[in-house]
């Protein structure tokens, strides 16, 4: 029972981790918590379903949605956030803007697709693996595999490529990065694109896991993933992974041992405890300063 819940939680936690990296990437470069990220995740899942419904096939449908959702991320930054940066407005203005954008996206999804829950196709179906009394479904295995691969790709991009170096430089000193010849606004767009793509993969995986998608699916998932990102140390990719797994496992444990009414609150209880002990999160750097 315990081992079973841990495995269920790990699969779920991978989903949270993929949403959490989106918060971390954008926070890293803009020092901004992008509260529209949960809605972006829902948009990605919904669009994947729309494309699959248009007979794209499952994988091309998800890829088409990844691109579209990545572009949505860029559009949010260009339309709503970049003008605020240009005017050197207070950080709180951008923060509130992202909350507004979140509502706009969710409501547009409701207007065009309806608010009801719709069936999402099961993505992976090749039976299940049984280890002792623990049953792991192929969906759960693939959730972990796909998430780990994506995490690896993101770490590679950030730490081993030229654009990744530009991301890290812009994160530490945007003005100096500009003077080096880096178009920082392009780097920010690229970051929003990556965040949108990861959120879509998370949306498709979680949608495929529960076989359900709906416009509001990003609200609670977004908040929990935000908790996961802060828990792991916002701005840190390994932190997002660990935070996501902790949130996923604890949620799964709470649901089965304390009753399902506790599942949504446990992530925040853990967040509060961790932040009291380690204010910068598990992998957080001390003294992140806005430069």
């Amino acid at each position: 029972m315990l081992a079973q819940q841990i495995f269920n939680g790990l699969a779920l936690g991978m989903g949270y981790a993929l949403i959490a990296v989106g918060y971390s990437l954008v926070f890293g470069i803009l020092r901004l918590v992008n509260f529209s990220h949960g809605a972006i995740y829902a948009f990605g899942a919904e669009m994947a379903m729309v494309f699959i419904g248009l007979n794209f096939g499952i994988v091309p449908g998800i890829i088409a949605s990844m691109i579209l959702t990545g572009i949505l991320g860029i559009a949010i930054d260009k339309i709503a956030l970049e003008p605020l940066r240009k005017k050197h407005s207070m950080p709180i203005a951008s923060l509130i803007t992202t909350i507004g954008v979140s509502n706009i996206i969710t409501n547009l999804l409701i207007v065009f697709l309806g608010s009801e829950k719709r069936n999402f196709p099961q993505l992976f179906n090749f039976g299940s693996v049984k280890i002792g009394s623990v049953v792991i479904s192929s969906t759960q295995i693939m959730m972990c595999v796909v998430s780990l691969i994506l995490m690896g790709v993101l770490v590679f991009i950030v730490y081993k490529t030229k654009i990744g170096l530009a991301m890290r430089a812009s994160e530490q000193n945007a003005k100096a990065a500009n003077l080096m010849g880096i178009n920082v606004n392009f780097v920010i767009s690229f970051t929003f694109f990556l965040a949108g793509m990861s959120a879509t993969i998370a949306g498709a995986l979680v949608g495929g896991y529960y076989q359900i998608v709906y416009p509001n699916m990003g609200f609670m998932a977004g908040l929990k993933a935000f908790a996961a990102a802060v828990l792991g140390g916002i701005g840190s990719l390994p932190g997002a992974l660990l935070g996501g797994l902790i949130v996923g496992v604890s949620e799964s444990m709470a649901a089965s041992f304390m009753g399902s009414t506790y599942r949504d609150s446990i992530a925040f209880v853990i967040l509060i405890i961790v932040l009291i002990v380690r204010p910068h999160g598990l992998f957080g750097r001390k003294g992140i300063t806005k430069v």
Binding site: L165, A169, K175, L179
Partner: peptide, 12 residues
């Protein structure tokens, strides 16, 4: 340019 205050990337 070598800017005022040096502006190196501290964690790189």
């Amino acid at each position: 340019i070598s800017p005022e205050g040096r502006e190196v990337f501290p964690e790189l």
